[in-house]
Write a protein that binds this DNA or RNA. Structure first.
Lengths: 216, 216
DNA sequence: AGAAGGCATTACCCGCTAGTATATTTTTCG
DNA sequence: CGAAAAATATACTAGCGGGTAATGCCTTCT
């Protein structure tokens, strides 16, 4: 999370460093995380505009100005939420990439992991897709670049698999976009507490992606 | 479009029938359609809550109360928009079904036609997916039933193809959901005036669907 | 031409919410 | 302990947007 415009003022103690600075920043981070968590849940069920900061404050057993201590405003909270889902997916891609295996296993593992994250961070991603348009131009573009990077990396993995002769696809970059579509669709068929477990849906999604690139 | 709760009061001339009744109703329908058209565009770019009726009125070079003559309120406008995309897709399915051919050709033609509609009614469908939650419980359920009917019919077509030995899929009903996902994803990769033409995207989407059911 | 009534507009209200200035509590540390 | 400052709460404002009378215009038929 770039703290660029999202975080507001955990205002520095002007003079000397008093009590545990590290603890302080940790506490701040925790509070911000809690706010985001609850905000994502709220935005998810009410929608961004319909949700009020008062509701959010109530859920946290706090008050509106409390929120303004940790975020510049409503828009900043939304921005942080939108960013989180995407960055986490990219981080997962990085993490998996280290576990080097064959290109096809790497692709499979990546898809499965991302599917898991999508289910885990369900609310964040739904909010992102839905409320994107409420972001500032600059924030929206920054996050979109991250999304594109994701597609690019999936595309690269597919191409690697093609190179290694595991699969055959006509147009890898295009295909990566459709894979992105399948993965995003998870958010629509998985609802927490539905009949199908998260793992089952993740598995199904991954299988669908594999079929898409001609693997059964 | 069920006029149940969406249309408001084109209030009947109480006594006798004066001028061209048919023309009258036609004009009313036209105005409603224009409102929906512009509303869809507006909701698409601003989001439902952020869009104001004043903006909508301005786009139509009219005023707020004008809108209230033809729709019960903001929610009714949204409802009509949401309904339109889905019903049109179902109608297309009906239309294609009459052109009876082999089951596989029927499936292909249906997918292509629906893809076209999705591109055509892009804004309506994006608004539907995004703003669903702002609908009344009852309206939301009615529209959701239509969506399910769509999935069911696609699933049926797939099963027919399997029966006729054209393709092999492990779980047709589940697969129809993923196909729905791919089709919906069109709305995210197609933007009017983008580099790829609508037809090209529709074609790509259809091909992706076919790969999903194991056809190349 | 002139009444009658529908169609659209101007002008208004009410409720709500993002954001803020001010007060109060709680923590920190000499 | 007690003062300073940091953290949180209370109380308020300003402006906006959905919805609604009240009003005027313009068609239409006699």
């Amino acid at each position: 999370m770039t703290k660029s415009s999202t975080a507001a003022k955990p205002r520095q103690r002007s003079t000397a460093a008093p009590t545990g600075r590290e603890i302080r920043t940790g506490v701040v981070a925790f509070k911000q995380a809690r706010i985001l968590e609850e905000a994502a849940a709220l935005f998810f069920e009410k929608g961004y505009e319909a949700a009020t900061l008062e509701m959010l404050a109530d859920r946290l057993s706090a008050t509106k100005p409390f929120l303004y201590t940790y975020f510049k405003g409503k828009a900043a909270i939304l921005c942080a939420i939108c960013e989180l889902g995407v960055t986490e997916s990219l981080a997962a891609l990085d993490r998996i990439a280290e576990t080097e295996r064959t290109s096809i296993d790497l692709l499979k593992a990546s898809l499965r992991e991302v599917a898991k994250i999508i289910i885990d961070r369900n609310e964040y991603l739904v909010v992102y897709q839905r409320e994107m348009m409420n972001l500032d131009r600059t924030d929206a573009q920054r996050i979109l670049r991250l999304r594109h990077e994701f597609d690019l990396r999936i595309g690269k993995m597919i191409e690697d698999c093609v190179r290694d002769g595991y699969i055959t696809v006509p147009d890898a970059p295009a295909m990566s976009i459709w894979i992105g579509g399948l993965l995003s669709w998870i958010t629509y068929c998985y609802r927490p507490g539905s009949s199908r477990s998260g793992d089952a849906v993740a598995d199904q999604a991954m299988k669908a992606c594999l079929r898409l690139i001609g693997l059964d």
